[in-house]
Nucleic acid binder design. Structure first.
Lengths: 351, 351
DNA sequence: TTGAAAGCGCTAACAG
DNA sequence: CTGTTAGCGCTTTCAA
């Protein structure tokens, strides 16, 4: 004769010290594990009675659901990966902050990856990201490597490229046109009567396109300069840009042509360096030299003189990217896959 | 009579378009799933033949292991969570960068959480973190809330508190003494002959302790000031500190006492604001006013004058924290649970 | 509304 | 060295 099955069929005795699971909660609340899951994830789908009992037990034993297990079962990890070139001193911080906040508000967590500016680690990074099956990936800039595009595409993970525009996004896109910025700043400076206009910029691909358009626009408006882009001096510095690179950049430009009367910098921090170097050299800003930055960082309005700069709404980019990914994850149809958040030239004392 | 079991017992036909799994790889390589797992995670434990066949299949079909599943089975998520008050304009960036890099080099990924300065979201954040079963948590600062300490402790996750020291860490600790910084800077300024010494600082708990020690040290060295800490004017500004708060801070201090001849700021960015405001007011630095910052950010050496500041080695903190957590995760015994990375006063032109 | 069964994709543990 | 078995802790699916 078989031993009768006991009422409590020896559930792996919940050893003291082990992290509690749904089953522990279920047992203590006298319900099925599935009801615990429902009470926690979808309180409306469960009777008030069960809901309350489950909540009591959860509070009492300090149960925290294992989201790895949940993610495996439901194929939703509630994580979003963000890739930035580097986090340090970067213009992307505002976006990352907005992203983190917007995601957290909806129960999503951010995974941060640094790709480095030479894309050295990009491949390993993509593997680390895809392997964690995030509900979305936010890329800073456009994914250039064909290999990377294919892997992301194949993974089926929603992707938001940012901080740039392109005709062929992998998936979704929230950005602005670097070409238009180049053109707009050039026109602005020429309109303000500047004649010898230069740029200091990082050696990245976006800056190159911005500069090309910048130079072309200057040349178009100042036919006397001829057709050669070399008439618009450009100082290239390694990314990431720093205050120091702004200082040395200005010195190099002036050594090349002392008559320069306007500089467009590829970051506010670098523009600040230009302001400082001008001060050190006794060059008056804006009378002798106009300075324009890029990014409108918090400090820019408090500089001496306050910095004219191109405002990029990093918060809008981050918030929008989060929204797009969450909509996708929740099955809502996404209307416009490409959003241009534009930019504004904020005019201040440095021009 | 039963149908004979076929040799290939109908493995859930790998529908085209579905993400491949270990089983797909195993089938195509003609080995057991376990061997695939070993080939990928521990190549030495498998014959060269199998290793090669597995690698070929992996490359060919673009298999990326599901780390959620792996983490669930192995109880190692290869993720580390970091909590910072806020990422923007922050002195913690260097640490976060070093952390990300050091972790990535060992195959770990960083999860970033922003707690906010008012600890408003701390609770939800902790839940989101613990639920993902990271292999470690790096906290910026000491966890003050008893509730938070208990939850972390109960979770059994290795914790590294940073950027501070305490006698009762939750687990591990990599930091330095804010009290000692306050004392050291005070002594430094007094030794340089400064008489009217003030501070501008954020309203956070660490700054308060630093300031108290700072004021006490000043009073001890300058008995003529009496015993009242009010003799060391302090301007409190809301966190996070900005260049703008440095500018207004200096104005407020001077309004209170025009004779102030030294200011200790709780961040380099704020110290920069002080330099700028001094320039605007025609106050000579360092002749009339000495300025000391905190953090030794990249830009500080390039300021005008270069900023004297307290160097905190964020890179060392991040790298050490990563090391401690990885050691723990891999079962290595951790020798010293508490590491004091110290600080250095970097003397430059502003004093 | 609630519950039971059956995995999600991987790896620990043990056998061969 | 290689394979088999049995879960990890949760949720999907289906039946009650």
């Amino acid at each position: 004769m078989e031993k009768p099955v006991s009422k409590d069929p020896a559930p792996r005795k919940s050893r003291k010290g082990a992290t509690p699971t749904v089953r522990d909660v279920a047992r203590l609340a006298g319900v099925a594990p599935m009801s615990v899951s429902r009470a926690l994830n979808n309180p409306d789908s469960v009777s008030p009675d069960i809901l309350q009992r489950v909540r009591e037990v959860v509070d009492q034993i300090g149960y925290v659901p294992n989201l790895l297990a949940g993610g495996l079962a439901s194929k939703k990890s509630r994580m979003v990966a963000a890739v930035v070139p580097t986090i340090s001193g970067s213009v992307f911080l505002e976006m990352v902050q907005a992203l983190t906040d917007a995601l957290a508000a909806r129960g999503y967590q951010l995974m941060l990856g640094q790709a480095g500016y030479e894309n050295s680690r990009e491949d390993a990074l993509l593997e680390a990201i895809i392997g964690r099956r995030p509900d979305g990936v936010v890329l800073t800039g456009i994914m250039r490597s064909e290999q990377g595009r294919r892997r992301l595409l194949a993974s089926g993970i929603p992707v938001v490229e940012t901080w740039d525009l392109t005709d062929s996004p992998i998936d979704m896109l929230v950005g602005f046109s670097h070409e238009k910025i180049g053109k707009a700043v050039a026109e602005y400076l020429v309109r303000r009567g500047r004649r010898k206009i230069a740029t200091i910029s990082a050696n990245d691909e976006r800056a190159v396109r911005r500069n090309r358009q910048f130079a072309d626009a200057v040349l178009a408006l100042r036919p006397e300069l001829g057709m050669d882009r070399a008439a618009v001096p450009t100082c290239i510095v390694p990314a990431p840009t720093t205050l120091g690179s702004g200082r040395t950049g200005l010195r190099e430009l002036l050594a090349h042509d002392p008559a320069i009367d306007a500089v467009f910098c590829s970051s506010d921090m670098m523009a600040q360096g230009v302001l400082l170097e001008a001060l050190a050299l006794g060059i008056e800003v804006p009378r002798q030299l106009a300075v324009v930055g890029l990014g409108d960082q918090a400090f820019s309005r408090d500089l001496l003189p306050p910095l004219t700069t191109v405002r990029i709404d990093g918060t809008a980019i981050g918030t929008t990217a989060a929204q797009l990914i969450i909509d996708r994850a929740e099955g809502k149809p996404v209307e416009e896959l490409v959003r241009d958040v534009g930019f504004i030239i904020v005019e201040r004392g440095s021009t």
